[in-house]
C-alpha cells in the first residue's frame, strides 16, 4: 500500500502495530520452543507469517468488542489483549491458564478483554460470532464482533449460513478470512470455486475486500472501514486477507509435501514484520534503536510469561468435574 495512506494513521499507531506483531511473533516462537521441549499437550498451530491480519484487525477494536478465533488461535488471543502469561499457561494445560487447563492451544478464551472463544472446528466460529452480534444488537451494547477463520472454513455450510444470517439481520460482524492458501495440505486452488473468497460477499449482499494480508497497514485500514460500518449499524463485511504460514499446518509439519521450498521462501521474503519495520525506518517514523527497544521489551514480556507458565501447577483432581454444567 504505497499510496501514502499511512498519513491518515498516526505515527504512534504505526509503531504500535509493529509492537503488536512482534508480540505475536515472539510469543508463538516461545510456544514452538515449548512444544519442542515436550511441554505442550496435544498439537500446536503457529501463526508465524500471518501476524499482520490479527494485529491489523484487532487494532481497530475496543476492549468491549469481541473476537472469535480458530484452531490457530494464539495470534488473535494475544492481539486482542489477553495477557501472555495466562495464554502460555493455558497452552501448557496449567490451572492458572485462561481456561484453567481445560482448553489448551486451540480453545483460548478470555472474555474480559473480548477474546470470546476460539473453536477448533473449522468454520464453527462464525455462527457464534453471529449470535454474539445478535446479542450485542438486542442488548444495545454497540459492540462489534470480529470473526476470524481460514480459507478452509469458507467452504463450510456454517460459513455460508452465518453470512446470510448476519446479512438479513444486519448484524455488526466483521468476517475475516485469513487465506493462507492451504487447508492443511489442500491448496485453495483445488478446493475453492472462486479466486477471491471475498467475492462471496456479493452473494450475501455485503461488501467484500480481497487484500494483501501481509501488509499490516492495508489490513488496518480495511478493517477500519468494516468496523465503522458495523458500529453504525450498517451490517457485516467480509475481508479476505491473503497471507501465508511460514511453518507447516502444525508444529513439526515441514509443510513441504504440498508446497515447494521456492514458494515458501518467496513468501518469507514478504514477512509482514520485516516489511513493516522497513516501512517505519525508511520514513523515519521510528528509529532503529526504538524498534530494537521494542523487540527487547517484548522479549522480556515473553520471558515473564514463560516463567509464569512453567512455574504454574497442573489442575488438581478437584478441578476435574467442575464447570460441567
Amino acid at each position: 500500500m504505497e499510496k501514502g495512506l499511512h498519513n491518515e494513521i498516526s505515527n504512534e499507531k504505526l509503531v504500535s502495530l509493529y509492537r503488536e506483531m512482534v508480540r505475536v511473533r515472539l510469543f508463538d516462537d516461545k510456544m514452538g520452543e515449548f512444544y519442542a521441549r515436550g511441554l505442550c499437550p496435544g498439537t500446536l498451530h503457529l501463526s508465524t507469517g500471518q501476524e499482520a491480519v490479527a494485529v491489523g484487525v484487532c487494532a481497530n477494536l475496543t476492549k468491549e468488542d469481541l473476537v472469535t478465533s480458530t484452531h490457530r488461535a494464539h495470534a488473535h488471543t494475544v492481539a486482542k489483549g489477553t495477557p501472555m502469561n495466562v495464554t502460555a499457561a493455558e497452552i501448557l494445560g496449567k490451572v492458572t491458564g485462561c481456561c484453567r487447563g481445560r482448553g489448551g492451544t486451540m480453545h483460548l478464551s478470555w472474555p474480559e478483554v473480548g477474546m470470546l472463544y476460539s473453536s477448533s472446528i473449522v468454520g464453527a466460529g462464525a455462527p457464534l460470532a453471529v449470535g454474539a452480534a445478535l446479542s450485542a444488537t438486542l442488548r444495545k451494547t454497540n459492540q462489534v464482533i470480529a470473526s476470524f477463520f481460514g480459507d478452509g472454513a469458507a467452504n463450510t455450510g456454517g460459513f455460508h449460513e452465518s453470512l446470510n444470517l448476519a446479512s438479513i439481520w444486519k448484524l455488526p460482524v466483521v468476517f475475516v478470512c485469513e487465506n493462507n492458501l492451504y487447508a492443511i495440505s489442500v491448496s485453495v486452488k483445488r478446493s475453492t470455486s472462486v479466486k477471491d473468497i471475498a467475492v462471496r460477499a456479493k452473494a450475501y449482499n455485503m461488501p467484500g475486500f480481497a487484500i494483501d494480508g501481509n501488509d499490516v497497514i492495508e489490513v488496518y485500514k480495511t478493517a477500519r472501514i468494516a468496523v465503522e460500518r458495523a458500529r453504525k449499524g450498517e451490517g457485516p463485511t467480509l475481508i479476505e486477507a491473503k497471507t501465508y504460514r511460514h511453518h507447516g499446518h502444525y508444529y513439526g509439519d515441514p509443510g513441504t509435501a504440498y508446497r515447494t521450498k521456492e514458494e515458501v521462501e518467496e513468501w518469507k521474503k514478504g514477512d509482514p514484520i520485516v516489511r513493516h519495520r522497513k516501512y517505519l525506518l525508511e520514513r523515519t517514523i521510528a528509529s532503529e534503536e526504538q524498534l530494537n527497544n521494542i523487540d527487547k521489551e517484548v522479549e522480556e514480556e515473553v520471558a515473564e510469561a514463560e516463567k509464569f507458565a512453567i512455574d504454574s501447577e497442573f489442575p488438581g483432581p478437584e478441578e476435574l468435574e467442575r464447570f460441567v454444567f
Binding site: T68, P127, L128, G131, L134, S135, L138, G158, L165
Partner: peptide, 28 residues
C-alpha cells in the same frame, strides 16, 4: 420481531447463533 425471530433454514447457523447469544448475555 426482535425477540421472536423466524430464521432461515440454517440449523447449524442459528443454533450456533443461539450459543453465541447465550454466552454474551442473552437467554435464548
Amino acid at each position: 420481531p426482535e425477540r421472536v425471530r423466524d430464521t432461515p433454514i440454517s440449523e447449524d447457523g442459528f443454533v450456533g447463533a443461539g450459543i453465541g447469544a447465550a454466552i454474551t448475555g442473552l437467554n435464548p
